[in-house]
Design a protein around this nucleic acid. Structure first.
Lengths: 396, 396
DNA sequence: CCGCTTTGTCCTGTGAGTGGAGAAAGTAGT
DNA sequence: ACTACTTTCTCCACTCACAGGACAAAGCGG
């Protein structure tokens, strides 16, 4: 099957495509209400889009008191691939042009095995989605990697947790394999993009999205656009010093946030507590599973285990302290907490909130919601799909 | 004399005005090289600007091998007023349309006396500048205040160090008094704007400008635009916690950066050291002046006083720690240090650099200059003039 | 005085975009 | 069935921004 080849010829067409993506099918008249163009001009642009095949007219909508309108929608066969590479697992999903998830696979994986092995796995997952009839091919793909990215080129730069990926041409390689345009970003930025597109951050211009998984990162959105920083490392808050001269961290410094809290730190601290006999609950889980993870701590906390709750609270306090500083500095309109540890839920959230509301300026916290992400594990893949669709739905 | 009434009618005219402001007089041909418009279109827009009186043609430039060009420049009688209200002093300056300072007055003052008293002083300073023949009136004024501002309305909101100003309609009141358009911003943002326009931050898209005066604040520039945050309090880093559970701070929390370092904290610590007999140098200055300020500490440090140097280093370390966190988070292309304590110079700068380069990620610090501001006390007033000129040189 | 260059002006063609007239297709009331 | 009114969509003429070329003006060097 022929894939999407055309791109919008001008900003009007790009605007229309995004409206159809975000608002679903629409009549010409409804579109006209949103774009500030005369009906005549609008009709011309819609006709041109119809010629390219990017949008189609299918059927008539119900009358609203007058002539029935033609439904204009994005071509139904368009497919985007969203890939979210974490430290220990991959998510791959197919979406339609409206960025609705049609199919989603999650598999365990280890980024440290390097780009070649991971690519093979990603491609086989994509193939599986194709084989299940959800797509005959992909019109574009977005991919998130757990480290800083030189965004224009789509190349990871000096990623601490995935050293083998440094300089690997992710964008070009994946584009070659899939035969479609590809955009690459940091996984945290994609989570923020996802929550912005379809989650809690809709209609918020400036917000922070803190992702707590194996490590800790923070997506920064300024005026509706992801801010990536000068070298693409913006939001890398895991090694902000939370406790001056505190615990040694793997990075060589002391007192880093990640030395106190993250999926990895939590698992380590829980294991230690279990071995010291501080918690029967955790000890029994350790014996049963051989090792502990954030999920075990969450379960223990849900069962009322005091040690688990303490660990979560303490981690939340540290994290909240750092976030409080960022809130004072950045004055966001919203803070989203997400990532693997979202399962720790409201115990974590409460600790973070307490610290932020206590330490940040009243003016900055006065009307500041601090909430859990709403999309869970799909935020990343939705963000990835949105990334490539933003790219494709912009003038060539 | 008639003041500026016209505004650019479109973005082309605005663009041309800014080019003339930032690049000085120019021929039509030179302008054409910079704006990507046909010569004919450019000529039309320049003619219209000439009609409005915003720009004038004065004389012919030297030949560059062909017909001599007409010099096009901004109207020479245009005058902007830049006002920078600090905690303890005011700066008022007149500039021409190219934002060159024609006259500059600095006077001590206390913001806590409230807006009415301060306004009176500012107006008398402006009158003095007028009386000296530098201006017959003002075409626009920019004003910076030491606290958060609701930018669109030009009204301070909940400013901690100037409680009497809360909600006072600074923009409207000053506009009324001066009879010209006025824009209001945080003083720190204006310093950043000034350094961006005429100082060390020219041609840097994303940077931080840390102003250490009576308090500590940070101007944030994203993509060449000042970022003000959701409620206008972005950059308010003085009360970020530098030491968890540390010294009590006037704000009610513990361990705030300003409790450890700022002009006020430095004066207090120096006084204490002098009284405890730790430094003969500081003690003699205390006896001579009755009190100590950051300037005394700077002088003592310059004279080699170990205690003064220690105070500066320790303050620089604390500040550097906080900045290190911000650098990891924001990944700027430049960090500018300015404000009243700039006199502490390289001792301070070295301490800050050490902390940032040690604690932040290599990717973020790899190519990160950390430098002192270049404009000193004029940064604020230049920023203020630039603020209003940006406003006036944009389509009506 | 003759080419050559640069600067600035004039004029016409093109394409984007507006706005109005009106056709097409529907609903509701009489 | 007929009328009045609504909404949707199309067509067409007119305006305006802008490009680009021709050309005039004003300088240079030989």
């Amino acid at each position: 099957m022929r894939r999407m080849t055309a791109r919008p010829a001008n900003t009007h067409q790009a605007r229309l495509l995004r409206l159809l993506r975000d608002g679903g099918p629409n009549s010409r008249a409804q579109l006209g209400d949103q774009v500030d163009l005369s009906r005549s001009k609008l009709a011309v642009e819609v006709d041109r889009l119809l010629e390219t095949g990017l949008v189609v007219a299918d059927g008539l909508a119900a009358s609203r008191g007058g002539r029935r309108s033609h439904n204009i929608r994005l071509a139904p066969q368009l497919r985007f691939l969203g890939v979210d590479i974490g430290a220990t697992s991959v998510d791959v999903a197919v979406t339609n042009a409206e960025l609705e998830i049609l199919g989603h696979i999650n598999q365990p994986m280890d980024v440290r095995e390097g780009p070649v092995a991971v690519f093979e796995q990603v491609l086989s997952m994509a193939a599986k989605l194709k084989a299940s009839g959800l797509a005959e091919g992909f019109d574009g793909a977005g991919i998130g990697v757990p480290g800083p990215v030189r965004f224009p080129e789509g190349v990871p730069v000096a990623p601490p947790i995935m050293p083998g990926w440094d300089g690997f041409p992710v964008r070009e390689a994946l584009s070659q394999e899939l035969g479609c345009p590809v955009m690459v970003d940091n996984d945290v930025n994609l989570m923020a993009t996802g929550e912005q597109h379809a989650g809690v951050a809709r209609s918020v211009g400036d917000f922070l999205c803190v992702k707590i998984g194996t490590g800790i990162g923070c997506g920064i959105v300024v005026g509706g656009e992801v801010y990536r920083g000068t070298t693409g490392s913006a939001g890398d808050i895991g090694h902000i010093v939370a406790v001056p001269e505190g615990r040694p961290c793997a990075c060589g410094n002391r007192g880093c946030l990640e030395a106190y809290f993250s999926g990895a730190a939590l698992a380590r601290d829980a294991t230690e507590a279990a071995q010291q006999g501080l918690s029967a609950e955790l000890a029994s889980r350790l014996e049963a599973g051989g090792s502990l993870s954030a999920v075990d701590v969450a379960a223990a906390a849900a069962a009322g285990d005091a040690t688990a709750l303490d660990l979560i609270r303490e981690g939340g306090n540290r994290t909240g302290q750092v976030i409080a500083g960022l809130v004072s500095f950045f004055n966001p309109g919203l803070v989203v907490i997400g990532g693997g540890v979202t399962g720790l839920g409201h115990t974590l959230l409460a600790a973070i909130r307490t610290q932020v509301y206590r330490q940040s300026l009243p003016l900055a916290t006065g009307n500041l919601p601090i909430v859990l992400g709403e999309l869970g594990p799909t935020a990343g893949v939705i963000g990835a799909a949105r990334l490539i669709s933003d790219h494709l739905f912009s003038p060539a």
